[in-house]
Computed example of a mutant assay.
Amino acid sequence: MEVKIGVQHSPRELVIDSPKTPDEIAADVAAAMSGATKDGLLSLVDERGRRVVVPVDRIAYVEIAPADKPRVGFISGSAG
């Protein structure tokens, strides 16, 4: 799953490819935003094992979507 996190006062969003399901990611975000994590941080791990940590008070939005698959295209036309 692709997770995009908008951070306040930052022109770019964080993009993470996560092996978790959308429901698991949403639960992690909800737990962090509700204060259940005690440290005020949202911590997600990507498919390569890298950890991204964001202070919850700086999160503007979280978007969860299927990861874009590489596209292979062919152009058909007449040669000649």
Rank of each mutant, 00 (worst) to 15 (best):
S18I: 05
A27S: 12
E24P: 01
V45C: 05
Q8L: 14
V7R: 13
V29N: 08
L41M: 15
A60P: 04
K4P: 00
G35E: 01
A36F: 01
D28H: 07
V54L: 09
R71M: 07
V45S: 11
P22M: 13
G49Y: 08
A31L: 03
I59A: 14
R12M: 10
R58F: 04
V54P: 06
I59T: 09
V72G: 02
Q8K: 15
I5H: 01
P19E: 09
A26P: 00
T21R: 12
Y61M: 10
I5V: 15
I64L: 13
Y61P: 01
P66K: 15
R12D: 10
V45I: 14
S34R: 08
D17R: 09
D57P: 05
S18M: 09
V72L: 07
S18D: 05
L42A: 08
D17H: 12
P19S: 15
R71V: 13
T21P: 00
S43T: 15
G73F: 07
I16E: 04
K38H: 13
D57S: 12
E63Q: 15
I75W: 06
K4F: 07
G6H: 04
I5E: 02
A26T: 00
A60W: 00
R12V: 07
R48K: 14
G73E: 11
P70Y: 03
H9Y: 13
S76A: 15
L14W: 01
L42T: 03
A32V: 08
A32I: 08
R51K: 15
R71F: 06
S76Q: 13
P11G: 13
V72H: 02
S10E: 12
P11M: 12
E47F: 04
D39A: 01
P70Q: 07
V3L: 10
K4L: 14
E13R: 11
G73S: 13
V52C: 03
A65F: 02
P70H: 10
D17A: 07
I16C: 02
P22E: 12
A32W: 03
A65N: 09
D57H: 13
T37H: 14
E47Q: 10
A26L: 11
V53H: 01
K69A: 13
I59M: 11
A31C: 02
I64W: 08
V53D: 08
L41D: 11
K38T: 02
S76G: 15
S43F: 03
M1S: 05
K20N: 10
A32K: 05
D68F: 06
A26G: 04
A30F: 05
D68Q: 11
A67V: 09
